[in-house]
């Protein structure tokens, strides 16, 4: 109930913001009868109405995970974001080994296994991508190996 009401309210507010920013779209002199604003505003209106519906007629609450699980999910998100930033400057193998080891540990918490998964995946996938698929991946940071 509560989850859905919050969700509906968020959707309605975002929809209004969307309509407002669609209203700011500049029209050019090459205007057609509809123009570039109309369709985005229709979408916003549709989302607003649907959001209100969800507020008025919410479904039952889902089982939200306990606090520690939410923490684990946040760590996973942070790891993935860091991985996205690290992929270019640090090459493929190192960030992949670390990121996949952490993810593996989070799914099944055993350190030894996780380290093996990290090492295996990073080297195995690198071989696959580099030699079987011919992707131009860089294995290690260029600063280390010139």
């Amino acid at each position: 109930m509560v989850s859905d009401r919050i969700f509906g309210a968020v959707v309605a507010v975002v929809a209004l913001a969307y309509i407002a920013s669609a209203n700011q779209i500049q029209t050019s002199f090459l205007a057609d009868p509809v123009g570039p604003k109309m369709f985005p505003m229709m979408i916003g209106a549709g989302a607003f109405i649907a959001g209100i519906f969800v507020i008025l007629r919410p479904d039952g609450d889902p089982d939200w995970p306990v606090l520690s699980t939410i923490g684990a999910l946040l760590i996973a998100v942070v790891v993935l974001v860091a991985y996205a930033y690290a992929l270019k400057p640090f090459g493929f193998i190192l960030p992949t080994a670390v990121a996949s080891a952490i993810l593996s540990y989070q799914i099944f918490p055993k350190i030894g296994q996780a380290v093996l998964v990290g090492a295996g995946l990073s080297i195995g996938l690198f071989m696959l991508f580099k030699f079987a698929l011919g992707l131009g991946l860089v294995a290690f940071p260029s600063a280390l190996f010139g």
């Binding site: 992929l87 493929f92 080891a101 593996s104 799914i107 998964v117 295996g120 995946l121 992707l135 991946l137």
Partner: peptide, 16 residues
């Protein structure tokens, strides 16, 4: 194939 190998693998393939 256990999930703790599969899912990290899927993630890395998606990223690449």
């Amino acid at each position: 194939v256990p999930a703790w190998v599969l899912l990290p693998g899927v993630t890395m393939i998606s990223f690449v």
